Lab assay of single mutants.
Amino acid sequence: MASQGTKRSYEQMETDGERQNATEIRASVGKMIDGIGRFYIQMCTELKLSDYEGRLIQNSLTIERMVLSAFDERRNKYLEEHPSAGKDPKKTGGPIYKRVDRKWMRELVLYDKEEIRRIWRQANNGDDATAGLTHMMIWHSNLNDTTYQRTRALVRTGMDPRMCSLMQGSTLPRRSGAAGAAVKGVGTMVMELIRMIKRGINDRNFWRGENGRKTRSAYERMCNILKGKFQTAAQRAMMDQVRESRNPGNAEIEDLIFLARSALILRGSVAHKSCLPACVYGPAVASGYDFEKEGYSLVGIDPFKLLQNSQVYSLIRPNENPAHKSQLVWMACNSAAFEDLRVLSFIRGTKVSPRGKLSTRGVQIASNENMDAMESSTLELRSRYWAIRTRSGGNTNQQRASAGQISVQPAFSVQRNLPFDKPTIMAAFTGNTEGRTSDMRAEIIRMMEGAKPEEMSFQGRGVFELSDERAANPIVPSFDMSNEGSYFFGDNAEEYDN
């Protein structure tokens, strides 16, 4: 993207840094990872977990959730003011799984939030270390993106479920800051804005008074975040219109849905970061690795190297396929839920299948599930090659597409044709070009129609051997075009429920 120079890199967003050079960025990201790792080690000690239990991804998720809940100030305040039966607002906890007599047992633990905050700050040299908290939120978000298709949420806001490739980060909490905003897809931002506008339509006082002023500035800020994701002048001009509207209503909703559809071809720039579970960072720190000293990046080879040398386990339900569970977590670790499966298959070195073909449910185990038949197995999170994460949407291309997802959002900077089903997408653009945004709409449609099938995206960008740390010898991959490109292809993934 041309304006790259004016933006802070995501590592800076990730670490609240002012302008830093590459070495400083690597050190501050490393410091953040160190903090998460030290916190995780301490929690495993508190909970008396064995090494194996500490490497269980379900335990990692519970521990991450506990610290996120302990620092969720708004919710904590709300819980104190609106006490609900049987919930102690000062405590947080969740299921911890232990191996007892050759069987997995679930144990519900409860801790004072104050105590968890103390352990977290102690692991982070006394700081609140917001960057580390956001990092864990993005890992949870990436896992949700890989596990669930947001059909219901899309339909509720009037969008087409086939636009799911635009929904990265749709389950990120509001408090995820600049680093969170960077990884949100165009569809996620559109959905947040539509929800806001709908509230304004239904509630006369939404934009009024002292609160209304705050609401208005939040609305304009979200519009600017979305505008910054678009790469064409016409899309940005249309966002200006939406932002400046005196009284946002149905016309703005129409414009936003139009823009979301246009992003299936004229893709937005959305950041991709490899955020790993805390149970990967903990053992690495415990083994003596100093992330701050060595430096770390979320968008280069580092996460690949770390996963190459990590042992992570997962509980497996009786009829689940461990290899499929591994694929789910591998995609989440690489922030690749909406990437082209052919690119992923090449990088991973084994075939990556669409969601609907995987015999696996989510990673988390519900409290009512029976533990008797639970097994555990090693997650295979290694890769054959590594590639640089991208934040450009890439230019655009036609490809055989599917009944489910009709476009992709690249996660890796790797040369390819970008699949999208042009006739299906263009069919949504018939007729409606009147109104105050008509010239911009016409211009956007013209650009979409001009998108050429034979153009290559990320020209000359390749993948790298894991021994090639400096990215000196790019390998331009070859793809098996007979395979499906979309992950949520004609899909039956479970729906995400809060």
Rank of each mutant, 00 (worst) to 15 (best):
M1Q: 11
S3K: 01
S3H: 13
Q4A: 07
G5V: 00
T6P: 00
R8P: 08
E14S: 01
T15E: 12
T15R: 00
D16K: 01
N21W: 01
A22Y: 00
T23S: 15
E24K: 10
R26Q: 06
R26P: 01
V29H: 01
D34G: 12
G35Y: 07
I36E: 07
I36V: 13
R38V: 04
F39R: 04
M43G: 06
M43L: 12
C44S: 03
C44W: 14
T45V: 15
T45P: 08
E46N: 10
E46C: 12
L47A: 04
L49S: 06
S50D: 05
D51P: 11
Y52K: 03
Y52A: 15
G54E: 09
I57Y: 03
I57P: 09
I57C: 03
I57E: 02
Q58R: 11
R65L: 03
R65P: 09
M66W: 08
D72S: 08
D72Q: 04
D72L: 04
E73H: 08
Y78P: 00
E80N: 11
E80P: 00
E81A: 03
S84I: 13
K87Q: 08
K90Y: 02
G93L: 08
I96P: 03
Y97V: 08
D101S: 11
D101I: 09
M105Q: 13
M105G: 13
R106C: 06
L108W: 02
V109L: 11
Y111H: 11
E114M: 12
E115N: 08
A123T: 10
N124Y: 13
N124P: 07
A129K: 15
A129W: 00
A129G: 15
T130L: 12
G132T: 05
L133H: 02
H135R: 10
N144V: 14
T146Y: 07
R150L: 12
T151G: 04
T151A: 14
R152Y: 05
T157P: 00
D160G: 06
D160L: 02
D160K: 02
M167W: 07
Q168L: 06
S170L: 07
T171L: 06
R174L: 08
G177W: 03
G177T: 02
A178T: 10
A179E: 12
A179R: 01
G180T: 05
A181W: 14
A181P: 00
A182E: 04
G187L: 05
G187T: 04
M189C: 15
M191D: 02
R195S: 07
R195N: 04
I197K: 06
R199S: 06
G200D: 03
D203T: 04
N205R: 00
F206C: 09
F206V: 12
W207L: 07
R208K: 14
G209I: 00
E210Y: 01
G212V: 03
R213T: 12
E220A: 06
M222N: 15
M222D: 02
N224V: 13
N224M: 14
N224A: 10
I225Q: 07
K227I: 11
K227M: 10
F230N: 03
T232I: 12
A234F: 05
Q235T: 12
R236E: 10
A237E: 04
M239I: 12
D240P: 00
D240R: 01
D240G: 12
D240M: 03
D240L: 05
Q241I: 11
R243Y: 05
S245N: 05
E254R: 07
E254Y: 10
D255V: 10
A260T: 13
A260L: 05
S262L: 03
I265R: 00
I265F: 01
I265V: 15
R267I: 06
V270N: 13
A271G: 15
H272E: 09
H272I: 02
K273H: 05
S274P: 06
P277S: 12
P277N: 08
A278Q: 03
C279N: 12
C279H: 03
V280F: 07
V280D: 04
G282H: 11
S287F: 09
G288D: 10
G288Y: 09
Y289G: 03
Y289Q: 05
D290E: 14
D290K: 08
D290T: 09
F291W: 11
K293V: 11
E294R: 14
G295R: 10
S297V: 06
L298T: 03
G300L: 03
I301R: 15
I301M: 11
D302G: 00
D302L: 07
F304M: 14
L306M: 13
N309P: 01
V312H: 00
Y313G: 11
S314C: 15
L315W: 06
L315N: 05
N319L: 11
E320N: 06
K325M: 10
K325W: 11
Q327G: 10
L328N: 12
M331V: 12
A332V: 03
A332S: 14
N334Y: 12
S335T: 09
E339M: 07
D340K: 03
L341A: 05
V343T: 06
I347H: 03
G349A: 06
V352W: 05
R355W: 12
L358W: 06
S359G: 02
R361L: 13
Q364T: 14
S367P: 00
S367V: 04
N370W: 05
A373E: 01
A373H: 11
M374E: 02
M374V: 13
S376H: 12
S376I: 06
S376Y: 10
L379Q: 03
E380S: 05
E380V: 09
L381H: 07
R382S: 04
R382N: 15
R382K: 11
R382V: 03
S383W: 01
R384K: 15
W386E: 06
W386D: 02
W386F: 12
I388G: 04
S392D: 04
T396N: 04
T396Q: 12
S402R: 15
G404L: 01
S407N: 13
P410F: 01
P410W: 00
F412L: 15
S413E: 01
V414E: 01
V414D: 00
P419K: 10
P419F: 04
P423G: 15
T424M: 08
I425A: 14
I425R: 00
I425C: 15
A427E: 00
F429L: 10
F429P: 01
F429Q: 00
G431M: 13
N432V: 10
T437G: 00
M440Y: 15
M440S: 09
M440H: 09
E443D: 15
I444E: 05
I444N: 03
I445C: 14
I445W: 04
E449G: 07
G450T: 15
G450L: 13
G450R: 03
M456A: 14
S457E: 01
F458A: 00
F458L: 12
Q459I: 02
Q459C: 01
G462Q: 02
G462E: 14
V463M: 09
F464Q: 03
L466E: 00
E469T: 08
R470T: 01
R470Y: 00
A472K: 09
A472D: 02
P474C: 01
S478M: 03
S478T: 02
S478Y: 14
F479Q: 09
F479C: 15
D480Y: 13
M481T: 10
S482M: 02
N483R: 00
E484L: 00
E484A: 10
G485C: 13
G485F: 15
G485H: 08
F488P: 03
G490E: 11
G490N: 03
D491N: 13
N492T: 14
A493L: 10
E494M: 14
E494T: 04
E494Q: 11
D497G: 12
D497Q: 00
